[in-house]
Design a protein around this nucleic acid. Sequence first.
DNA 1: TGTTAAAATGCAATCGTTTGCAATACATTC
DNA 2: GAATGTATTGCAAACGATTGCATTTTAACA
Lengths: 341, 341
Amino acid sequence: MRKKVSTLSDMAKLAGVSESTVSRALSNSKLISVKTRERIQALAKEANFSVNTTARNLRLQKSNTIAVVLLIHSENDQSTTDPFILRLLGVIADELTRIGYDMLLASHTSPNENALKNYFDSKKADGMIVFGQGNDPALFDHLLNNDMPFVVWGTKDPHQRYLTVGTDNFLGGKLATEHLINQGCKHIAYAGRKTIETELRFHGYQDALEKADLPSSPLIDIHFTYQDGYNVATKLLETQQFNFDGIVAASDTIALGILKAFNDFNAEKELSEQAKPFSIVGYDDIEVSKFMHPSLTTIRQDTYEGGKRLVELLFKQIHKKPAHSVELETKLIERGSSKLV
Amino acid sequence: MRKKVSTLSDMAKLAGVSESTVSRALSNSKLISVKTRERIQALAKEANFSVNTTARNLRLQKSNTIAVVLLIHSENDQSTTDPFILRLLGVIADELTRIGYDMLLASHTSPNENALKNYFDSKKADGMIVFGQGNDPALFDHLLNNDMPFVVWGTKDPHQRYLTVGTDNFLGGKLATEHLINQGCKHIAYAGRKTIETELRFHGYQDALEKADLPSSPLIDIHFTYQDGYNVATKLLETQQFNFDGIVAASDTIALGILKAFNDFNAEKELSEQAKPFSIVGYDDIEVSKFMHPSLTTIRQDTYEGGKRLVELLFKQIHKKPAHSVELETKLIERGSSKLV
DNA sequence: TGTTAAAATGCAATCGTTTGCAATACATTC
DNA sequence: GAATGTATTGCAAACGATTGCATTTTAACA
């Protein structure tokens, strides 16, 4: 095997020209004659040479990398487990790969301004996509003040100065609830948590009930996981506190957990002791929801569209073009789980 | 706002010392007196300074980054959709973050040796974790020959010289099949594809049947998605070719797709026309499998353990320590879906 | 063939760190 | 106070690419 050529200067020697010429030839500059350009490109391919991105980035003062940051706010906030978030990450990865950018994935447990800012200061990333708005509205101010490009997945709020991509959570909560009302449900509960990102879903739920003159129950506090949905619902069932004919779940995972708890519970009971069926609507439309039996009625948050828009919006900022938060279509997907009563 | 200090030289001026001193102080070198060291560190914190990683990496000839590469072999091989892979990615991201490394995520549609090698040549990554062994055994040779550290998720094979982490696919297929046999199934089908990674599952299936003197059917070709499981099964049901009392599915997604097809089919038919129930075992144990009704019997591939081992094994290589492929525990998780007959 | 403009190439500075070595400061001892 | 040794610090050369400007080559024309 020939001595490996790993730098521009190696290539220069190999081709008998200067480093500048090689550099220009490889970037297809028309300063270089077509003949030498092609010759050098062929040579590079043959020698299996590719420029050192680190050096290149240093010189160009950019990183060609987008940081995707998961802000973890509590023990139970397992973003790296959530199928919806994971799917969204997959889409983003595809998008970034497509346009030639690298994706840097990191999760932060106790996020602070500097941790985020550091991605830019240390020139690790040219832009950032953040999951988890959290409860610290000042968290993003540092970034904003130094105009570092970033987008947040989540709810748009007039008070926030940063850009977001997400569905209309108020509308989502409302659509879900209205649907259950139309199905004839009278005692509708809301299962989930009140995070900044999802609080509006709960308000949408309350609003719909109010307009229909139906009572709203206090929120059933459940983390966004299958397991917690299952645990909490099981407890309610066992203590006979599970007396709803409709449930609005803050995520599909929660909804599926609850459904499972219900099925398991009834499976072990005599007919007389069984809990009564109920209708349920989820949120997200993760892929598996369609394949449950009964399939899950839910509010779709289109992951493909969402991922694309996040990237698109981020690059608008990077290129200093005008940009506005986007609200994805917020749509009820009607399936089997809401026809159980 | 004071002029922002963004380089070592800025810091040097600020502190009234040389760049070298700042550099050493920040890396806690004992060459620098404790007093100035602390002073400078405080100053850096206050000025919100952090070293430029790009420059640092160039100088140190490393990237502090691990590339995670998804090799996509066909249109239908949607790794970025697969819940099992996505979950594994989440674990890896957590692990890498924990030890202070960045994770670079990329998918490649038409992988070739150079595309992979390029991550090292261009100094983008110090190591690589690969998903998708594919059908080109020579694909990794370039990497091996230039001893670039990488690990592959998948099946261990004596012919392969590279390191892998994964379950014992032969055993997995066998356990799944034996379990169905023990449940009394007589006509057991295998649903999935024959990729390098999973071919052994099929052989395990065949082996178990052979040992039990039962006939094996030809493989039902299904891509590793819910949807394809659903589509193919539906077609079989409609053409009355669905006459198995047991199915070994090559993934949980396939299994769930099939179950759904079955449920949907029977829901629209008269009792007399309904397809007969069957037992089914999946593969992976994705989280949702536990929350199906009936819950899915499956072969667990522990994602947490798997992710940790991948990272661990990779770093053994990076640090030039002896390393061997690891085979994760391959275990049948018995649940409801295999007691249907 | 000589002159001039245009095309192609090369020189050298720069991006922000780290680190071997040289240089300075300080403390210690006689 | 001189001499020695030890702690601290600074100088300057890398790391590998890009690019404005200077320089050379080529082409074109008289």
